[in-house]
Write a protein that binds this DNA or RNA. Structure first.
Length: 914
RNA sequence: AGGCCCGUAGCUCAGUUGGUUAGAGCGCUACCUUGACACGGUAGAGGUCUGGGGUUCGAGUCCCCACGGGCCUACCA
């Protein structure tokens, strides 16, 4: 069965096939009745507006690696996909989309607009899920969810009504964050702070009935139009005499009281503060204490309104400019000082947020937060209903924020989202909150009801995600089986937005934590350290990169950099290196297939080589015993499996990735395959068969080990293995076990010894610049240790091949010394390559000197330490013993080095003499 | 303002409870197109772990200070 197999791995040619296969076969559909412990994970729902960006790629890679790993190990596994309706984002996108077609969404009206968004969602909103399918994420697509679906709406209403009835949700008038571009109120979290260079304007307010002026300092002169007082500190001697008097508000010619309030910082500015209750949170509170009027001087879109007198109609920043000019003209502007302050920006539109008085819906948080704090604080491994947050420093962040949590503004002035289930009667504005549209007012019975036009913050519905997606409030089979979920993987940038709220809501409504562990992954940054962002044009399109390097390479690359707590900077170098790895795997398999044809021609049957029984017994013996290198390979494999399992269990993706990389490339390709090459073609039938059996068993296990990281490549290659015949997918497992019979410390030690000898011989060869790399030369080996001698003797063939030797002669110390040629020594052995051309004695001496200097230093430091009484009395026995053993070795080595140096000096002086 | 993180080879980063001569990938140098792979092979060069102080028998690892970089939270006008 001759195989056509491409010389280089071409991911583009195999990925679409398997991606489609996995979806069509519904291979990853969860079955609540399946055996095994449960592993369930819900996707952090990406925005429907979105397309896959590099951050998703990292997140989904981590989720998919863990999901596939668990599935292969026999867990009852669910990876639930879905998308978020993303209120503000989506509304902005569709408004713009309509505007591009000359349609003003206001004119469409709410109902029609919502229809258009749904239509847009059906047509364009599926992009990200299509991409996820294309990159082979092992989701259960039959359980895909959308945060604004009718089922989700029912859950949202249920939650809203209950929280209202429990008095968590309330409606109130307060000072809120207003985005003049998105035209909605924002929660505190949606306001991003940024330090900006600004000014502190000192403005003189004349005091009525005196010739004095009170100078106030402000960063926002335009808000003075809404001033209703000036405040000073009650104990400020400079101003005590003015308290109770009135100031004449410049430009507006309005008399406003001069009040005393503790909130004033005497040190800051002039110690006198203008009070604008309608446009500043502090002033709002001060206004409440002093019963001051709240004069809103702006419109929704941050232009000055009728309250702003002659400035009405101006944009807030134009107004600022004009006001400053006018004040200057009137001689009331005392000075302008530079001043930097953190200003609030709308997370979405990047507009400066305007603090504003408004009536909104809020959710009380303190009480909801308490059990969510407890769940994290009381975490212990295995303790029910507690949550582990990884990495640890995020846990501290979470706790800090939760301890200082403030009420959550949940209403939004948008059309796209879950509409508030609250109705007002026309007559009295009584509030009726209900699960179903009520027929009459719950208070007065009026039948003229109007529903609140607002929708809920997007995060309100995503906060219910882990249980809303599984059927809650019904106790469905899915809910009973898969809730609480096992794990949440998300970015630390939405720890508060999302994770914290899920924990609070989950505990409150289900009595259980929504997930046992939160793993917060890194952000992918650009070379300059910024977060990669499509809007800034600094992002890399993962789909294009997948196309270029292969999805598996991308996954492997991200995994190998995903050390917990460390942000990732992606580069083409790293992607290329991961692609090279994929190619290496491809070619290792290719080597097997190409040579298998030859072997089959000699009459071998595949079943004989790769039946399940053969694999169950691997490694297979030849001539009654397991060849050393085979024992070694499986020992390395077992160690790697243990390491990968341990690393993945602790979210140390980079360690797991580096472990499989090292095993496959370093151990399997560089040493094992090279070692057994001749055996595969051996005339000794039994030996060849054993080699083939072990090769197939090892590759089979290696592919399974690699599968969570590189699903496409491994699926493709695995299907070409003889043992895969008739099987459906490598993805269904099993994951290789680190068999106890594979563990073999002796084999590990022995092969390491042989590798050391090979490396020493190769290094000498490399020093002979004249020596053709392919020319076989003679070498001598000497050791004082009989076991080592036996080992080398038994593996002489392999050694000769690896070091390109005509013969490796094992000689006594005296015979060794009698020969000429370049030498390398360790404490355990000496090797000499016999070659007519001498090495560059000068270079050799330099190397030896440097090495012996290093050794001398190491020896001196060890002797010092071992000579120290305190060290001897306090250090653990193990450390002392280890140090002593190492010291003895180093001394032998040093002695050899120096003898060699002496020889070289002798040679050169002799040469000089003749 | 408070809190957190980072500063290790030319570059990007690992380095789990402090313990034997600090690792990887890329890049670099030399040699090798050997029948799996040049997206390859072999050998090598290269860091005393930002600086200073301290704890300790022993510190890249713990503590303090300084410098440099980043992030988060926050109603100082």
């Amino acid at each position: 069965m001759a195989r056509e197999i491409a010389k280089a791995y071409q991911p583009q040619q195999i990925e679409p096939h398997w991606a489609e296969f996995w979806v069509k076969q519904a291979l990853f559909k969860a079955d609540p009745n399946a055996p095994g412990p449960v592993f369930s994970i819900v996707i952090p729902p990406p925005n429907v507006t979105g397309s896959l960006h590099i951050g998703h790629m990292l997140e989904h890679t981590e989720i998919d690696i863990l999901t596939r790993w668990h599935r292969m190990r026999g867990f009852n596994t669910l990876y639930l996909p879905g998308t978020d309706h993303a209120g503000i984002s989506t509304q902005r996108v569709v408004v713009k989309y309509l505007a591009d077609q000359g349609i003003d969404y206001h004119k469409l009206g709410r109902e029609e607009f919502e229809k258009r968004v749904w239509k847009w969602k059906e047509e364009a909103g599926g992009q990200i899920t299509q991409q996820m399918k294309g990159i082979g994420e092992s989701c259960d697509w039959s359980r895909e969810r959308f945060t604004l679906s009718p089922e989700m709406s029912r859950t949202v209403r249920e939650v809203f009504v209950r929280l209202y009835e429990e008095k968590f949700i309330y409606r109130a008038t307060g000072l809120v964050n207003w985005c003049p571009v998105c035209l909605t109120v924002l929660s505190d979290l949606e306001v991003a702070h940024e330090e900006r260079q600004g000014h502190l304007w000192h403005i003189q307010y004349p005091v009525v009935g005196t010739k004095e002026c009170l100078t106030v300092a402000t960063t926002r002169p335009e808000t003075m139009l809404g001033d209703t007082a000036v405040a000073v500190h009650p104990e400020d001697e400079r101003y005590k005499h003015l308290v109770g008097k009135k100031a004449l508000l410049p430009l507006m010619k309005r008399e406003i009281p001069i009040i005393a309030d503790e909130m004033v910082d005497r040190e800051f500015g002039t110690g006198a503060v203008k009070i604008t209750p309608a446009h500043d949170p502090n002033d709002f509170e001060t206004g409440k204490r002093h019963q001051l009027a709240e004069i809103d001087v702006m419109t929704d879109d941050a232009h000055m309104n009728a309250n702003a007198g002659e400035y009405a109609g101006l944009d807030r920043f134009e107004a600022r400019k004009k006001i400053v000019e006018d004040l200057q003209a009137q001689g009331l502007l005392l000075k302008i000082a530079d001043h930097t302050s953190a200003i609030g920006l709308c997370e979405r539109s990047k507009t400066i947020v305007e603090p504003r008085v408004s009536t909104q819906w809020f959710c009380k948080m303190k009480e909801l937060a308490a059990p969510a704090i407890k769940a994290v604080e009381e975490y212990e491994p295995g303790k029910a209903n507690t949550i582990l947050i990884v990495p640890d420093n995020r846990r501290t962040e979470y706790l800090n924020w939760m301890h200082n949590i403030r009420d959550w503004t949940i209403s939004r002035q948008l059309w796209w989202g879950h509409r508030l289930p609250a109705w007002y009667c026309k007559e009295h504005q009584h509030i009726t909150v209900a699960r179903e549209t009520p027929a009459k007012c719950g208070t007065c019975g009026s039948t003229t009801l109007e529903q609140d036009p607002d929708v809920l913050d997007t995060w309100f519905s995503s906060g219910l995600w882990p249980f809303s997606t599984l059927g809650w409030p019904e106790k469905t089979v899915d809910y009973r089986t898969y809730y609480p979920t096992t794990l949440l993987i998300t970015g630390y940038d939405i720890l508060f937005f999302w994770a914290a709220r899920m924990i609070m809501m989950g505990i409150h409504f289900t009595g259980q934590v929504p997930f046992a562990t939160v793993y917060l992954h890194a952000l992918v940054r650009t070379g300059t350290g910024e977060k990669m962002s499509k809007s800034k044009g600094t992002g890399r399109d993962p789909v294009a990169l997948n196309q270029q390097y292969g999805t598996d390479a991308m996954r492997f690359c991200l995994a190998s950099m995903a050390a917990p707590g460390t942000d990732i900077i992606l580069s083409d170098d790293k992607l290329a290196s991961a692609r090279n790895f994929a190619n290496k795997i491809w070619n290792a398999a290719r080597f097997l297939f190409v040579n298998l044809d030859k072997f089959e021609q000699s009459g071998a049957r595949l079943e004989e080589l790769a039946s399940p029984e053969v694999r169950a017994k691997a490694p297979c013996a030849a001539g009654g015993k397991i060849p050393l290198v085979d024992a070694w390979l499986f020992a390395r494999l077992a160690a790697t499996i243990d390491m990968v399992n341990d690393a993945l269990a602790n979210y140390r993706f980079h360690e797991a990735a580096q472990g499989v990389y090292q095993f496959f490339w370093g151990d399997f390709c560089d040493w094992y395959i090279e070692w057994v090459k001749p055996e595969l073609q051996s005339a000794d039938r039994e030996r060849a068969t054993a080699a083939w059996k072990n090769l197939f068993a090892a590759l089979d296990a290696a592919l399974r080990l690699l599968h969570p990281f590189m699903p496409f490549l491994t699926e493709e290659l695995w299907h070409q293995l003889p043992q895969a015949a008739g099987a459906n997918s490598i993805a269904l497992g099993p994951f290789p076990e680190a068999e106890s019979r594979w563990k073999n410390a002796d084999a590990l030690r022995d092969v390491a010894q042989i590798q050391e000898v090979v490396t020493a011989l190769r290094a000498i060869r490399a020093e002979f610049r004249q020596l053709d790399a392919r020319k076989k030369v003679e070498a001598a080996f000497s050791t004082a240790d009989r076991a080592t001698e036996g080992l080398i003797r038994a593996n002489r063939e392999a050694l000769e091949r690896f070091a390109v030797l005509s013969e490796l002669r094992i000689v006594s110390k005296d015979n060794f010394d009698a020969q000429s040629g370049a030498v390398r020594s360790t404490a355990a052995f000496d090797v000499r390559v016999v070659y007519a051309e001498t090495v560059d004695a000068g270079a050799e001496k330099t190397r030896l000197r440097r090495e012996s200097e290093g050794l001398q230093k190491a020896i001196a430091s060890k002797e010092r330490q071992l000579g120290d009484k305190t060290f001897r009395s306090r250090a653990p026995e193990k450390i002392i013993k280890g140090l002593e053993a190492m010291l003895a070795q180093q001394k032998i080595e040093l002695e050899k080095l120096q003898r060699r140096l002496g020889d070289l000096d002798g040679d050169s002086s002799q040469a000089a003499g003749t």
